[in-house]
């Protein structure tokens, strides 16, 4: 355990370097660069709000913020895990030539998206500020708890990312299948619809209750939008999901990592 911690500290600089490399490559040759992490969600929000306040109507207070908060968490999870999924396979040249602890690769992708999410959080902050100025929302100290659900989601993503990255090494089908799964996952998370909209389709509820993202998104909205602090039960569910996936992913990854090199 102590030795593993030492190796992790030794490769911390690599982790930082890979993350900054990804940032540089992502925004290379774009004029606005990192501003896109803030602009993108705002533009998406404009479209979604336009569509859902005219064509399909949901009775949700502050719909644009409702959407944006859901989108922020979901986008982090889908983006980071999709990148983590391919991380081992895409690092084949490196893995074949130098010894590096292999969990660095999925971990790096997850952390990169996590950093990105913090930039996108600025978009949420801007919208909340606007809503407060217009008197639609009130500032509250609970908003400062916003990193808590993000951290829960982060731990979940690290575990889940390691799990699917390992599976993808042996079955490349995972990559094709996953994009479909992400779409289904998006609709099973209350991002654009309120939970009340499910009254007409009660049978979906048990499925949604199995979706860890539902809890993270709800938690996030509770502290950011509704000025409430989730109780111990909600926290326990979130922690339970996160740790369960971290342990499962870590275990599968550890069991299979020595055979990665034979399949990439």
């Amino acid at each position: 355990m102590k030795k593993q911690l030492q190796t992790f500290l030794k490769y911390r600089f690599l982790l930082e370097n890979l993350i900054s490399r990804d940032l540089k490559v992502k925004y290379r040759r774009s004029v606005l660069g990192l501003c896109w992490s803030i602009l993108n969600p705002l533009l998406m929000m404009l479209i979604i709000t336009a569509v859902f306040s005219t064509i399909f109507r949901f009775e949700v207070e502050n719909f644009s913020i409702y959407y944006l908060t859901g989108w922020l968490i979901f986008n982090f999870v889908s983006e980071s895990t999709t990148a983590a999924l391919q991380s081992i396979v895409n690092s084949a040249t490196l893995i074949k030539k130098v010894y590096i602890p292999k969990y660095i690769f999925p971990l790096e992708k997850i952390l990169f998206s996590f950093v990105n999410m913090f930039f996108s959080m600025i978009a949420v902050a801007i919208m909340i500020a606007v809503a407060c100025l217009m008197g639609n929302m009130q500032l509250s100290w609970t908003m400062l708890l916003f990193p808590v659900p993000m951290l829960y989601a982060l731990v979940f993503c690290i575990g889940f990312g390691m799990l699917i990255a390992a599976i993808n090494v042996f079955f490349r089908d995972m990559g094709h299948l996953y994009s479909v799964c992400v779409t289904a996952w998006m609709y099973l998370t209350p991002i654009i619809y309120p939970m009340e909209a499910l009254d007409r389709a009660q049978w979906v509820l048990p499925i949604i209750k199995c979706n860890p993202l539902y809890y993270y998104v709800t938690y996030f909205r509770d502290v950011v939008m509704y000025n409430t602090v989730p109780g111990p039960a909600d926290n326990l569910i979130c922690i339970g999901f996160s740790l369960a996936f971290l342990l499962l992913g870590g275990w599968v990854f550890k069991r299979t990592q020595d055979r990665f090199i034979l399949h990439i």
Binding site: L14, E16, R21, V25, V98
Partner: peptide, 16 residues
């Protein structure tokens, strides 16, 4: 895609 300077740090960190 990165410059030599950036790669020195990246490659150095790859080697630990």
């Amino acid at each position: 895609d990165l410059t030599a300077r950036e790669n020195v740090f990246l490659n150095g960190s790859v080697l630990g």
